[in-house]
Amino acid sequence: MSVATQDNAASVGRVGRTFVYLTLLLFALFYLLPFFIMVVNSVKPLSEITGGNMMALPQEWTIAPWLSAWSTAQIGVEPTGLRPYFWNSIRMVVPAVVICTIIGALNGYVLTKWRFRGDTIIFGLMLFSCFIPFQIVLIPMARILGILEIAGTTTGLVLVHVVYGIGFATLYFRNYYAAFPTELVRAAQIDGAGFFQIFYRILLPSSGPITVVCVIWLFTNIWNDFLFGASFASGDAAPMTVALNNLVSSSTGVKEYNVHFAGAILAALPTLLVYIVAGRFFVRGLMAGSVKG
């Protein structure tokens, strides 16, 4: 492609190229603008927002909205800020991601290196489970969590996210291990290595990249989940997204836009950070999740 595009580029000419650059810059502006507005308005006093221009830089810089969003803003009925909910999300995401990744890696290993009759059907069933509308499981899930007495707890949410994360985790590892030479596995088998030994010694050492992809995908998805959080843990155990929504849509008192923006950035920060640090892997995960099979 590169040679051809170079030729293209030459023939498109100056005007065409300017147009291409202009369009791209315009779209960059479109993508950046909402975030810029959030950041700028989160460091302004409220009076500058309601009485001023949202595009303008603050005349008086303040970090009070951030402090308020983090530790004193009214969430529901308690003036706790988003801090406890931030930790709720951490306590939910970390175990769910770890468990899911381990299960996914083992499943992927079995489905590619220890194939048996009907494995494609099993994988197909797991794969489809990634794409169901979760509304279809909300009612029974609420009941099961109630029966297990973990409704409204972080533990309950971990269980939910593990169950519905297995599909994607398996998909990633299966596709990755499918390209791994099976001869190596067979040779190790002949040398007397067992099932787990082969996994630890041969596949795991080269699973770094796909593990990163899988962890990032699960982390982003679970951190950003709203439906399960709102359905199964809306009180003290609510995750960050639910708390943010409560903060923003609370109807009492003056709407503190600057606090809302600071809160939104706080909720976005972990996934954004991951994206900035490991964007390459994030994109790979997205692509692997969209081009299946």
Binding site: I37, F226, L244, A264, A267, T271, L272, G279
Partner: peptide, 16 residues
């Protein structure tokens, strides 16, 4: 820049 919104929660996008 084109891709970063994908890392955000829909709740954040909605708020903005």
């Amino acid at each position: 820049i084109f891709l970063y919104p994908m890392a955000l929660s829909f709740i954040v996008t909605g708020t903005a």
